[in-house]
């Protein structure tokens, strides 16, 4: 499993799309605290905000439970009912549901094969690499549907 994460290419190399995700400091701390608290398991949640041209700014987050059965150190899954609720919150808050954040405990902040396999269009996928309950790195990615690979986005944090 670890080898697969390292060998199979899941993203476009040496290519960063001209897209920006702005993460205000308060949101950054919220996400880090939540995901570090989930260590050594993967934690996950939704984020919301506004989008204009190539910029997405995060304004709120919604942590959800990782419901993956079995070993949660390398997998996450979101309950479909939590997803339904997440869409309803977007309406209530008049914000766009922009994507999902999740952690990679003891792994780099690079999308795994499983991340790619289950990726949906439009969403930004923020990944935090966490070691010993301390955040090491942040990255953000979006699926390029034509080539079925992730494209890295510019994080402003």
């Amino acid at each position: 499993m670890i080898a697969a994460k390292e060998i199979v290419l899941t993203y476009k190399e040496n290519h960063k799309k001209d897209r920006y995700i702005i993460v205000p400091i308060i949101i950054r701390r919220q996400i880090e605290r939540l995901l570090e608290g989930n260590y050594p398991n993967e934690g996950v949640g939704f984020f919301y905000g506004d989008e204009k041209d190539n910029y997405r700014i995060i304004k709120r987050i919604l942590p959800v439970k990782n419901v993956k059965e079995g070993d949660q150190r390398k997998r996450f899954e979101i309950d479909p009912r939590d997803y339904l609720q997440a869409e309803k919150f977007a309406e209530e808050w008049s914000l766009s549901l922009l994507g999902i954040y999740h952690s990679h405990p003891n792994h780099p902040a690079i999308p795994s094969v499983h991340d790619l396999k289950r990726a949906v269009p439009y969403f930004s996928y923020i990944i935090l690499s966490i070691e010993n309950s301390i955040t090491q790195d942040w990255t953000s990615w979006r699926l390029d549907e034509k080539v079925k690979l992730f494209e890295q986005e510019n994080l402003v944090i």
Binding site: R75, F76, E77, P80, Y83, P111, S112, D115, A119
Partner: peptide, 10 residues
């Protein structure tokens, strides 16, 4: 009727 993508990853 709501369509829900089954969100998962690793």
């Amino acid at each position: 009727v709501s369509i829900v993508p089954a969100i998962a990853g690793g």
